[in-house]
């Protein structure tokens, strides 16, 4: 090796090490700055329900539950959509494939603050005037057993709340999920698919029994990618979730997620409250980190499989 090469390699290595440094740095900073909160509240910070700056009492449960609830809602809406979109794109004729997939990808390019703004000025009134009355009264969910519990205390919403946040989040994570699913579908060997069609399977049967089974791990990986996005999304949710420090009480109820709590309170917070917010950040970091671990595991499984077939 030339001497110059050694230096070049060292420089490149240093560049790559920045990623490790950043990750360790983020963990360390959040730990250091949240130390006060952990000392003060202990591990019970995680299931404390009060968030009261006046009394200096902070609990993470409303934000954690809100984060999980909005994520689950958005996934429930986005999974079938992303699956169907990916399916349609893989099965559509060659000339249509590229424009379609690029259009869906453009959904991911729109900044989240524009989603939030659209949600606030267009979706919230729409939910209030049409969707929520329709769900509650026309469909009569409110009168079903458990319906009131599902929709929130009285079943009449302000338009804000978890359902609205879920709809926006679903639209935002759809391109990420459908991109991964598209790759998985494309990975299925054409021979397998063609044999299924040859046996007289319909498209549904081919998809369900061949494509889905072949690429289930990749699809799970794609779902987790969407989940990671939905967990940490701040701006779009901030505009429409209503920002109340309360545990989610139903689809139409207002609440907050970890990210929106941070965005709302951090700029003015001092002392123990700031430390508690850093602790919330640490919780979010751990959640998103574990999701990344699972995603990598599943996607690595599919890529080794791809390697075998190549």
């Amino acid at each position: 090796m030339h001497k110059r090469d050694t230096i070049f390699c060292a420089i490149c290595k240093a560049g790559a090490f920045v990623s490790l440094l950043l990750m360790v740095g983020i963990f360390a900073q959040l730990l250091i700055h949240s130390a006060d909160a952990w000392k003060h509240f202990g591990i019970s910070f995680l299931w404390g329900v009060d968030w009261d700056p006046a009394m200096d009492i902070y609990g993470a449960l409303p934000s954690i539950l809100g984060t999980l609830f909005s994520t689950v809602l958005s996934l429930a809406l986005a999974i079938p959509l992303a699956f169907a979109v990916a399916l349609l794109i893989t099965e559509s004729p060659e000339w249509l494939k590229r424009p379609l997939s690029q259009c869906v990808d453009l959904l991911a390019a729109i900044p989240s603050v524009i989603y939030g703004m659209w949600g606030l000025f267009v979706l919230v009134p729409l939910m209030q005037d049409y969707v929520q009355p329709f769900l509650a009264d026309t469909l009569g969910i409110i009168h079903l057993p458990g319906g009131a519990w599902l929709l929130g205390e009285d079943g009449v919403g302000s338009g804000f709340g978890f359902l609205t946040a879920g709809v926006i989040l679903a639209l935002m994570i759809l391109p990420y999920m459908s991109a991964v699913m598209r790759d998985v579908f494309r990975m299925t060997p054409p021979v397998l698919r063609e044999s299924a069609y040859g046996l007289g399977c319909t498209r549904l049967e081919t998809t369900r029994d061949i494509v889905l089974r072949y690429g289930i791990r990749g699809i799970i990986g794609g779902i987790f990618i969407g989940m990671g996005r939905a967990l940490g999304e701040t701006m779009a949710v901030l505009f429409v979730i209503g920002n109340m420090m309360e545990c989610p009480a139903g689809l139409f109820s207002c609440g907050s997620t970890i990210a929106t709590t941070l965005a709302n309170n951090f700029a003015e917070a001092t002392g123990l409250q700031q430390s508690a917010l850093f602790a919330l950040g640490l919780v979010l970091l751990l959640m998103s980190f574990s999701i990344q671990l699972i995603t990598r595991y599943y996607l690595a499984l599919t890529s080794t499989r791809r390697g075998e077939n190549a």
Partner: peptide, 8 residues
């Protein structure tokens, strides 16, 4: 890092 919520 790519999957990290940007607010963090």
């Amino acid at each position: 890092l790519m999957g990290l919520p940007s607010i963090l």
